[in-house]
Each structure stands twice: as C-alpha cells, then as structure tokens.
Design a protein around this nucleic acid. Structure first.
Lengths: 136, 136
DNA sequence: CTCGTTGCAAACAATTTGCATTTGT
DNA sequence: ACAAATGCAAATTGTTTGCAACGAG
C-alpha cells in the first residue's frame, strides 16, 4: 500500500515526488538539496514547505536543526533511530547507526522527574579528507 | 580584571550589560529573553546580534539551536560542559550537568576516522507540572 | 585623536499566509 | 461534487548591512 495513503494523507504528484527523493537518499537532506533534486519547473516553495511540515507531523521525516540553523535537514524515518556526524569544515553529513543514550535517558528521567520522550544528538568534527587538507 | 578586557575586546556599556545578564542567569537565554531583561530603551537589535556573535566567537557564550529554531538560546560558558533538558510543552529549559558522551565520541572517532571536536545534545520531555496538567 | 562600536534605516533572506484555481477521492 | 492541495503574490518575521555619529583607549 502507498505510504502516503497509509499515513492518511492525499496522494499528490508533489508529495510522491518528495517522498521518493527521501526514499532514495541515504542521508538527510536540506531544503535546498531537495529543491535541486526536484529541479526543472520546481514546485512552488510554499508547497515544499507545506509538504515538509506535513511529513514531519505525520512522522514520515524528522527535522534536525544543526548548529548553523540554515543547515536544517530532513531525514526519512527508517526503522531505527539514528544520529548524525557532521564535518564542520566541508559540512558533509553522515549517519551513525545506533544510539548511546538509552541508559542515560533513564538516569535523567529519574533524577529530574521528567518523562523523556525525545532527544537531539549530533557530533561535529573534521572528516578524513578535511584533516588532510588542513594539514597541508 | 574585566572579563571583556581579558577577551581582548573593548568594554562598552552594552557589552557589559549583556555579559551581566548572562552571569546572573543559571539557564541559557533566548534573544527575546535578553531583550526583555534589558528592557526600557532597549539597545538596538543589530547591536545585540553583533554582541552575541562576538561573544560566541570569543567563546564567552555558546549558542544552542533547539528543535524549534526560533528557540535558539545562548548560555554563558561556565567551567564545565553541560547539556539541556527542555520541556516540550511549556518550553522550560533546565541544565543537566555532566556529559555521557566521552567514551562514545572516542568509539565514533575510531570507527569513522573523524576528529570529533564538538557535539550537541539535548533531551526533550514533559516536566513534572506539565505531566499533571496533561493528565487532568 | 583614531578606530572600533553603536543606532538607525534600509536591505535581504527565509518562511508563512490568503486566495483563486486545480486536483484527488 | 466537495474538500483539500497547489501556485502565485503579498505579507511577515528574523537577521544582516551601510553609514553617519559617538565613545573608548
């Protein structure tokens, strides 16, 4: 069954197009990357914003705000929970599978009385090729 | 010695005022909270932006971009590294001391070849009073 | 005195909104 | 046919910039 139907939203060309782009990408994508991949006539900006909002509330994608807020990215929600590793020089984004925080969340929940239901974690560093270029 | 002088920047009334606000706050502050605390004639917006940028590059404060990017907050840099716990209902921000990620960073550095030099971690949940209000 | 900093207004960018038209069911 | 989604343009918001006046060293 169509994933959009499954989420109880209408199937339109634009939505299908955006969904396909996510499905074909290993890594999360920024708004501009998505625009570029749609290319050509490009659907209207507002439509894209509306689709991303919708997908986010329907939990089809997750939004991640990076240190530089203009680098906000959207990732297709796969089975497992993932985190990102960002090169602070070339801004390449890679995905780290797994999550080290389950125990930690419980500890904090206990100490604080909060019900923890989400978290945001990203690592920043220098990727291998940037390390080489920097040391030249 | 004045902390601004120590950072090699000129001491002005505006900068001193913003610095004092940070020093007197336990928790990180958003732009609007800072505006409010300055109150009255309020210094010019652009000046505040410039001061926050300056403080950030001089490592006097750290900027944290939360899931809702309009909730970007700035925290005075104390001795130790800290993370935030945000109530997703009332948006109260509290500070968690300590950090569970040192080992994890090393693992990832080894696997990926990256030199990890920073990370962003925030927990989101429901605070105690919001839990009560929700269950009413 | 000199140069960095401020305030102001204008510019710019990013996102949102209202509304007529088109499209999915 | 009806409600919802799209495209377009305008509005709104948040942030940045250029420049004259001001203030710190």
């Amino acid at each position: 069954m169509n994933e959009l139907k499954a989420a109880n939203i209408r199937v339109t060309v634009q939505r299908q197009q955006v969904l396909d782009i996510f499905k074909n990408s290993e890594v999360p994508l920024s708004l501009n990357q998505i625009k570029d991949m749609i290319g050509e006539g490009f659907m209207d900006q507002s439509t894209l914003y509306r689709i991303l909002d919708l997908f986010e509330t329907k939990k089809i994608v997750t939004r991640t705000v990076l240190l530089d807020p203009s680098l906000t990215v959207y990732g297709y929600v796969h089975k497992q929970h993932r985190h990102l590793l960002i090169c602070s020089r070339c801004e390449t984004i890679s995905v780290i599978s797994g999550c080290p925080l389950h125990d930690y969340e419980n500890q904090i929940a206990e100490k604080s009385g909060y019900i923890i239901n989400d978290h945001q974690l990203e690592l920043y560093g220098l990727c291998v090729s940037c390390q080489q270029e920097v040391s030249l």
